[in-house]
Design a protein around this nucleic acid. Structure first.
Lengths: 303, 303
DNA sequence: TACAATGATCGAGTTTCTCGATCAACCGTG
DNA sequence: CACGGTTGATCGAGAAACTCGATCATTGTA
């Protein structure tokens, strides 16, 4: 492949094409006339074509020169855009940020937070991905995701972890359920065989199991839900009771249902929301900023 | 305006984005790893953004890096195209060539010549303009035309002139005209008041007048033709006789009419076809090549 | 005829680019 | 756990490119 012209050389030619005067063009490019003259000649040598026709009185571009100048203009514009785009993506919480979140957080926390985030950071372009923790972390590690919003405890390996806040579990059952007559519910009084869970893979399932201890009766839960909304349908249908994170309740997950939630007896089991990222990620600072933003928004809604 | 990245720097980044390995990318760019490493760092500093994520084992591009690499790819492609286009326009008789020709030549000489020219020079992109000599020369001088095909004598000032060949005039009249009974026609025996001419501005008109000498009778010709085809209509209509250049007859301009042409007595008056261009034009050589081509084609058709 | 303006050219200084060598960190191997 | 091999970063030196100021020839203007 032959050598390419320099953007600077092209800029010289473009300037010259706009003034048709070496000195003025040079001034516009903040160089001396000799420099611009040499640059143009260099470009002509490189391309093997005469670009400028010197007439002793007039300077004219050849047809090829006009063509090269026009293309050069586009090239310079594109280069400017490139630099612009790169630099505009440099500020904190700006540019494209690929954020992952697990299904038991994303629909309940993000809608409350994102609008304000967007307002505060107009430059931010957020790409969202909802997936199970394991897959999110895998994407973080392989660089296909910048930050992930997950729930601890979870083995995050050597990833950078920024904890946000504790998210306590509450007991959820039908209004008629005798267990909800009291103001708070003691977990050990709940029949774990009655406890409905999300299907395998959801960390919330593991957290709930950890909170309740191992099932005492049959090992396998008869039915498992694929999402929290179906889980609620199942509880409402009388298939059992469940535990739900506080943030989902705050988001009004029970609205429209005839279920009630009761706090669990202290110390209430909980999960801890956290942001994770690669330690080497250039978005580490963004992760921290996002963390503070989420905590602030959460604090505002819960007092 | 801030500084722009170098095409070379972008090439480094693109190469790196394709191999994700500094050494291999450097090899592909025919530089050492240290050079490429420095180039990338330079680019990052310039843009103020981290483009590459170094992980001690893996090299990954950040999202901004991917974006910059993608844009860089396009930029490099455009630059390559630019160089390619310019260089392809460099060969003899190739690239865009703006050719002008006068109305008494263009329709009669060019159709016979251009097909072969195109065949011989595939790279040539010919833009044609048909106009009166004066306007063509003006366009030549102002750089809006590269070469013009005109007829001498004409005042060409300091333009470069390349003469092609003599184009003799012939006497044209109706079959019944007594003047065409002889094999050749002596001009001095023609009544110049009978002579029909093109309207003002056509050089052919001036050449004909020069051949015949000044009108003896009334100064103004009663009717004047706007083109050679209308001129022939007028002759056929019995309004008079005329002189036509040999090349128009060779092109079959009388075909379909009932007019006959007779050579003029030696020394036959003539015009001289010529190519003109600015002396400073980068297409001077093309003008010469075109001239040779036209002469060769003309010689072939006339023996 | 003197003067101002044009672009080309030259030599010198500076900046930039590039290279080779080296370093520290890390891998897989045995 | 030591090993050679590989990774990218870094350094100093040499080469190349860039830029400048001064000057020149040419040309149009006053």
């Amino acid at each position: 492949m032959r050598a390419l012209p320099t953007l600077r050389q092209l800029a010289y030619l473009v300037a010259l094409s706009e003034r048709l005067n070496f000195r003025m063009a040079a001034e516009a490019q903040f160089v001396t006339q000799s420099t611009l003259s040499a640059g143009i000649k260099e470009l002509e040598t490189l391309l093997g074509v005469q670009l400028v026709e010197r007439d002793k009185h007039h300077v004219r571009l050849t047809t090829v020169g006009e063509d090269v100048a026009a293309r050069g203009r586009e090239l310079l514009a594109a280069a400017t855009d490139l630099a612009e785009a790169a630099r505009s993506a440099t500020g904190p919480l700006s540019g494209p940020l690929r954020l992952g979140a697990i299904p038991t957080i994303a629909p309940y926390l993000l809608p409350r937070v994102l609008p304000a985030l967007r307002r505060a950071h107009r430059e931010l372009r957020l790409y969202l991905r909802e997936d199970l923790t394991g897959r999110l972390l895998e994407r973080i590690r392989t660089g296909r995701l910048d930050v992930a919003l997950i729930a601890l405890p979870f083995d995050t390996g050597d990833l950078y972890v920024r904890e946000l806040f504790r998210d306590e579990f509450a007991f959820v059952a039908r209004e008629a359920d005798p267990a909800v007559r009291t103001k708070t519910v003691a977990l050990r009084r709940i029949d774990t065989d009655d406890m409905l869970l999300l299907e395998e893979g959801h960390c919330l399932r593991d957290h709930a199991i950890a909170a309740c201890g191992p099932r005492r009766g049959r090992r396998e839960s008869p039915v498992e839900a694929t999402s929290l909304t179906t889980l609620i349908q199942m509880v409402e249908g009388g298939l059992g009771v469940t535990l739900l994170p506080r943030i989902t309740l705050d988001a009004g997950i029970l609205k429209g249902s005839r279920l009630v939630a009761r706090p669990l007896a202290s110390p209430a089991p909980s999960r801890t929301l956290a942001l994770v990222a690669r330690r080497t990620s250039p978005r580490l600072r963004d992760a921290d900023l996002l963390a503070e933003f989420l905590m602030e928004e959460h604090g505002r809604s819960t007092g």
